[in-house]
């Protein structure tokens, strides 16, 4: 690791102010990506501003039909939260299969979506559930937030404060774990909103990051059942391919995981 200056911010305002004063600062949430990258000397921020201890970024709120998860809430706290389990159990499930126990104790929802790894689990949940990303400046629809591999709509110095999820009628998430990293080799989140809209998002599959899967959405809109997806054809072009999964395999996983997510959603 290169030398850096560590700051523990006690409020979002202080974090923003510290960021403004630094030449090349990075915000630190759970550190599950940033710290390994820094240890390998692949990132060399002048300053690291820790958001993890900011009180206003912690916790979960269920208000009517909206579940709000504050940005610095850890996966473990999300996974074990009673409101999450009650309102959107698919999110509790997603966090329970995310990474490994060490990652779940440290990693946060805000850190995950700000990093927007193309194989991260949470972006699929946001996109499928039509979530809204709240920042210190504005609200951004999930649709507009994710901009491709490791890229988001966040501006320089902008801090995610929370994610709001409309509570769906039904939702499910299933993933094939990457055998080494435990990211999603491919994961699919399916959701049916209370107004009957169907949204399906896949992570770990596309070369451009998390994506909606319109063909499966249409099939499920017509018939919410795993068998409705049987005849859907997913193209392998533009899908990721690596030593753990060919593009054809990932195309298959989009279908199979979607079917299993529908079964899990009930």
């Amino acid at each position: 690791m290169y030398q850096t200056t560590y700051h523990r911010a006690s409020s979002v305002d202080e974090a923003v102010s510290l960021f403004g004063k630094s030449s090349e600062a990075k915000f630190l949430a759970g550190g599950q990506t940033l710290l390994p990258v820094m240890k390998q000397r692949l990132a060399s921020p002048s300053d690291v501003i820790d958001l993890g201890k900011i009180k206003e970024l912690q916790g979960v709120e269920l208000s009517g039909d909206v579940l709000t998860i504050k940005a610095a809430t850890t996966y473990y706290d999300i996974m074990t939260n009673a409101d999450v389990k009650k309102a959107i159990p698919a999110i509790a499930h997603l966090t329970s299969v995310l990474g490994d126990p060490a990652v779940r104790y440290r990693g946060t929802i805000g850190g995950s979506i700000a990093n927007n790894d193309p194989a991260a689990d949470f972006p699929a949940a946001l996109l499928a559930l039509g979530a809204t990303v709240k920042t210190n400046k504005r609200s951004i629809a999930a649709e507009d937030f994710f901009k491709g591999l490791f890229t988001t709509a966040l501006e320089d110095g902008e801090i995610i404060t929370a994610v709001s999820f409309p509570v769906p009628a039904k939702a499910g998430y299933e993933k094939m774990r990457h055998p080494a990293s435990r990211f999603a080799l491919t994961g699919v989140f399916v959701a049916q909103t209370k107004s009957g809209e169907v949204r399906v998002a896949a992570t770990g599959a596309s070369q451009s990051g998390v994506m909606r899967v319109p063909a499966i959405e249409a099939a499920l809109k017509a018939n919410w059942s795993p068998s409705a997806i049987d005849s859907v054809s997913i193209s392998a072009s533009n899908l990721l391919a690596d030593i753990h999964g060919t593009a054809e395999y990932r195309a298959n996983l989009v279908k199979v995981m979607a079917q299993r997510a529908v079964t899990a959603a009930g």
Binding site: M176, P179, G245, T246, Y249
Partner: peptide, 8 residues
Amino acid sequence: ATPDRVWR
């Protein structure tokens, strides 16, 4: 025998 290889 990775899942991909077995599936293929």
